[in-house]
Simulated scan of single mutants.
Amino acid sequence: MEKELAKSLKENSILKLSDDVELPTILQSEMERQSEKDEFNIDAYMASLMTTSFGRVLLWSPRLPSTQDVVSLNFCEIPIGSVCIADVQFKGRGRSQNVWESPKGSLLFSFTIQMEDGRVVPLLQYVVCLAMTEAIKDLTLKNGIPPLNLRIKWPNDLYLDGLKVGGILCTSKYRSKKFNVSAGVGLNVDNVKPTTSLNAALRKLNCGYKLQREEITSSFFNKFEHFFHILINQGFQPLEELYYKTWLHSEQRIIVQEQNEDQDLPIENVVTIKGLTSSGYLLAITDNSEMCELHPDGNSFDFFKGLVRRKLT
């Protein structure tokens, strides 16, 4: 069925790269044997993929402006769970319209999700982050290597030994009573710049093992599909304990701002992070034992320099 769908996409030339540019496509069966050693190996990826829906329809290109744009623009033409992977992208999108330029050695992909319950849509980015950290942990343990110190920085960044190595971006549109979500992942696997990479950390261990983009991607989808079914059927609560073990913020003390009607400048207060609220924001407690929810102010580049406090009743 998936092969027939791929043929239809090619024959009808319906994939778009932008509003007025078609995306030329060829089938995997029509491709010459991959000669570039740093190209994404489709066969290796498919061989270890064990999902029933996510990641099974693959769009791959050596170079794209943005995988996120490809899946967003073609959301209704490709099956739910389809993934777009690029070896290099030069107009990748980050939070607040930031551009994410990605060199070779990065893992760059976006995929499609559809959801009906708007209450859990904001929590999806946490599931994507968790699936990635758990996938990489499984791969290292499988090869007899202690897990890397890969952690989640709320809301959607991945950090390794204090340096950013990845980011998650989820965008959604509401259509026909469903949320069409495009989830994008960027991860430094084997590129040293601009910060560090997973394999740079492995080289320091002198373990002789090197993570491959293909095995990370398939392991991610194997994890994500399982976690996604939990989120849809049971909510985020069954995943919370595992998430809190992976993120950076338990009991973290931070400064937040609160606007006072009698003063022009906001008041700064110190709070302690306790977890997440049901809506996906940060749950914190003040030194006066008052529970509050922390929201980004929408202006600051760093979320933790632009949090505002809202009291919980």
Rank of each mutant, 00 (worst) to 15 (best):
Q114D: 04
N98Q: 14
K245N: 12
F179P: 11
N269A: 11
K164L: 04
L108N: 13
N12M: 15
S110E: 02
R63P: 01
L312D: 06
N12H: 13
T246N: 14
G275C: 10
N143K: 01
P194T: 10
N222L: 06
L276C: 06
S176P: 09
S279K: 13
K193E: 14
R175F: 12
E261Y: 11
L158T: 00
F224H: 06
G162C: 02
Q237L: 06
L163Q: 14
G306P: 00
I273M: 07
Q259M: 09
R56Y: 01
V120F: 00
V57W: 04
H226W: 10
Q234H: 13
F54Q: 09
F301P: 05
T52H: 09
K204R: 15
L211T: 08
S61Q: 07
Q257P: 00
T67M: 04
L231D: 04
F224Y: 10
P147H: 02
I78T: 14
A183I: 08
L283N: 11
K37T: 12
C76Q: 13
C76L: 13
C170Q: 07
D69L: 05
I145F: 00
K137S: 02
L202W: 06
Q259F: 09
E39H: 11
K91I: 07
V57T: 14
L141A: 01
N288R: 14
S72F: 08
S250P: 05
I80M: 04
E32V: 08
P103A: 12
F54H: 13
F221H: 05
P194W: 07
V83Y: 00
T196V: 11
G92W: 04
V127F: 02
N222K: 04
T313W: 03
S182R: 11
E101F: 12
V88L: 11
C129A: 02
R151P: 03
N12W: 09
F220V: 03
A200Q: 14
R33H: 05
L282Y: 06
G184V: 07
F111Q: 08
G298W: 00
K142A: 03
P65A: 07
K193C: 11
M115L: 15
K178E: 13
S278D: 13
N41Y: 00
N299G: 07
D190V: 09
V189K: 07
V128K: 01
L231Q: 06
I145N: 00
P62G: 06
V120I: 15
V71F: 06
S218D: 03
C76V: 12
L5T: 13
A6N: 12
L15N: 07
F303W: 11
